[in-house]
Computed example of a mutant assay.
Amino acid sequence: MDKMKVTYEVMLGLSAEMVLDEALRKHRSEKLYKDIDEALASGDEVAFRHLTDELKAMS
């Protein structure tokens, strides 16, 4: 019975980690889109290229 409890706790921990990772990825992606829009509006080509490269790397 203890082995099942440990397995369950490990799986629960992994699930929580996956949810957190997805939330962080989504937050970063939304921030990158916002920053890309700002770089376009201000005409900052260097920042635009850097940010779009980072966004591509996330995919």
Results as ranks from 00 to 15, higher is better:
residue 27 H to I: 08
residue 45 E to L: 06
residue 8 Y to A: 15
residue 26 K to N: 11
residue 34 K to W: 00
residue 33 Y to V: 07
residue 27 H to W: 06
residue 15 S to F: 09
residue 20 L to G: 00
residue 46 V to P: 00
residue 11 M to L: 15
residue 17 E to C: 08
residue 27 H to C: 06
residue 40 L to P: 01
residue 8 Y to S: 13
residue 26 K to A: 09
residue 33 Y to S: 09
residue 21 D to W: 04
residue 44 D to M: 01
residue 35 D to N: 04
residue 30 E to V: 07
residue 3 K to L: 15
residue 41 A to N: 05
residue 10 V to I: 15
residue 25 R to H: 09
residue 35 D to L: 05
residue 18 M to F: 09
residue 8 Y to R: 13
residue 47 A to W: 01
residue 21 D to F: 05
residue 47 A to E: 09
residue 4 M to C: 12
residue 37 D to E: 10
residue 23 A to P: 00
residue 17 E to D: 11
residue 31 K to I: 08
residue 24 L to P: 02
residue 19 V to I: 12
residue 29 S to P: 03
residue 22 E to N: 04
residue 26 K to Y: 08
residue 30 E to Y: 06
residue 28 R to N: 05
residue 7 T to Q: 14
residue 32 L to H: 02
residue 10 V to A: 10
residue 39 A to R: 00
residue 6 V to W: 13
residue 17 E to W: 09
residue 15 S to L: 11
residue 24 L to S: 05
residue 41 A to V: 02
residue 4 M to T: 14
residue 4 M to V: 14
residue 22 E to P: 00
residue 8 Y to D: 14
residue 35 D to K: 03
residue 10 V to Y: 13
residue 12 L to A: 13
residue 47 A to T: 07
residue 21 D to K: 09
residue 14 L to D: 10
residue 5 K to V: 14
residue 20 L to F: 04
residue 8 Y to M: 15
residue 45 E to N: 07
residue 14 L to Y: 09
residue 32 L to I: 07
residue 20 L to Y: 05
residue 14 L to S: 08
residue 41 A to T: 02
residue 28 R to D: 06
residue 14 L to R: 12
residue 37 D to M: 04
residue 25 R to Y: 07
residue 12 L to R: 13
